[in-house]
Amino acid sequence: MLPAITADKLTKRFGDFTAVNQITFEVRKGEIFGFLGANGAGKTTAIRMLNGLSRPTAGQASVAGFDVYRHAEKIKRRIGYMSQKFSLYEDLTVRENIQFYGGIYGLPLDEIRRQMKQLVAGLGMEPYARSLVKSLPLGWRQKLAFSIAIMHRPEIVFLDEPTGGVDPITRRQFWEMIYKAADEGMTVFVTTHYMDEAEYCGRVSIMVDGRIAALDTPHALKAQFHAASMNEVFLNLTRPGRHQS
């Protein structure tokens, strides 16, 4: 089976500054892959290259089987994107948001109508379908945003810090939605600098100064660094020589 994402010595330089330095990794189909790093470690630049928003300086990468240099447009049709901060239009209703996103991905009208029913029912939001998004609690908005991001059945969905600040129960409901999507074969690519989100991923990579410093399952990484949490693993990697007291 073809990997969902491959990157081979992928590099991006801005003038003298190397933001992403020869990163190599593979994301398997149906995997929940955590892409971690401190602020400014190069996460955002790497994602932009994979999404077709930024042209790599060197190296190779393919997403959903398409080359990032030549087929950026084809990649965009096959991926979904959700960020906690700006995914839904707050001054539109739930229905209007669904219609809008269905529309921009070119779903036929009857398909949008069918999905609308299913999606709203699945989230138990029937009474609120005509409410403005901004009137909904944060946790609901996030679950709605995720459902909309995968409405066009993308092969890969990119999630940017999806659950920061949500209450613990809603966060788990959200992750259960992600597990379900992955179980159905969707590849989930999560970027975050919240280490507690990292714990839920199948495998994680940790970027430090433009390079991938570690890549494995959270379980294996914790064992390797003799750490109780991903937070400790992260501190170990980013502050060499200084260990948590």
Binding site: N39, G165, H193, L235, R239
Partner: peptide, 10 residues
């Protein structure tokens, strides 16, 4: 500590 990476939080 919201929006700050794990090292700075620590």
């Amino acid at each position: 500590t919201t929006g700050v990476d794990a090292v700075s939080r620590h």
